[in-house]
């Protein structure tokens, strides 16, 4: 392929609106993925309202609230880092992204302590302790582990994506003129945040 054609094809591939559209469609599939989980949650909450109520009291609302605040702040920092890059402030953008990464890490650490405390109390799928409880509570904790686990997996993926963005910005692959990758990563991070905003009340607050 000659240089000219290469350039022409390359030109075609730079389509920011298209890239954003693709990302929104992908996020849509993510919403549906969790939608399936929320459906399962809704069915069993309807079936065992009392036991869900009892089981939910075992969760640590303080840690949940703390994590919510952390995740919401991380969404703010990622949004600001995009704005910073748009204004040409590469350094500030990098700082803000690193802050996001740090918040994400804190979220995961808190999550880790939450889970390990539960497991130390003998509450985990298939544990003899849990099996003595009524079915509704078994399901509540089953859903708790599956849904927060799946969400945690998304946080980890988001952390990897943001790390890549930090490298890309540092190496000028993502620039003030070409920042759609960063924008899409930001969108993904907001989704991770959004899902948590639904998980938090469903597990910690509704009692």
């Amino acid at each position: 392929m000659s240089d000219h054609q290469e350039a022409a094809v390359h030109q075609l591939h730079r389509d920011d609106a298209g890239a954003r559209m693709g990302m929104w469609l992908f996020l849509f599939t993510e919403v549906l993925l969790f939608g399936g989980m929320f459906l399962v949650y809704a069915v069993y909450r309807y079936q065992y309202p009392d036991q869900f109520h009892l089981a939910a009291r075992e969760l640590n609302t303080t840690l949940g609230t703390l994590n919510t605040i952390i995740l919401l702040t991380s969404s703010l920092t990622v949004a600001l880092s995009i704005a910073a890059l748009q204004n040409g402030n590469k350094f500030l953008s990098l700082i803000l992204l690193s802050a996001t990464l740090l918040f994400a890490l804190t979220f995961m650490v808190i999550k880790y302590f939450e889970w390990t405390t539960k497991i130390a109390h003998g509450i985990y799928p298939g544990s003899p302790e849990l099996l003595t409880k009524p079915n509704g509570q078994i399901l509540f904790f089953g859903l708790y582990y599956v849904m927060t686990g799946l969400h945690g997996l998304h946080v980890l993926v988001g952390m990897v994506v943001i790390s890549f963005m930090i490298v890309f910005i540092a190496r000028d692959k993502v620039t003030p003129d070409n920042y759609v990758k960063l924008e899409n990563s930001g969108l993904y991070w907001h989704l991770v945040d959004l899902i948590w905003i639904f998980l938090f009340p469903l597990f910690y607050l509704i009692q």
């Binding site: 069993y44 298939g126 078994i138 582990y145 599956v146």
Partner: peptide
């Protein structure tokens, strides 16, 4: 379910 027996 197969791996952990969550019960869903």
């Amino acid at each position: 379910e197969r791996a952990f027996g969550v019960g869903i």
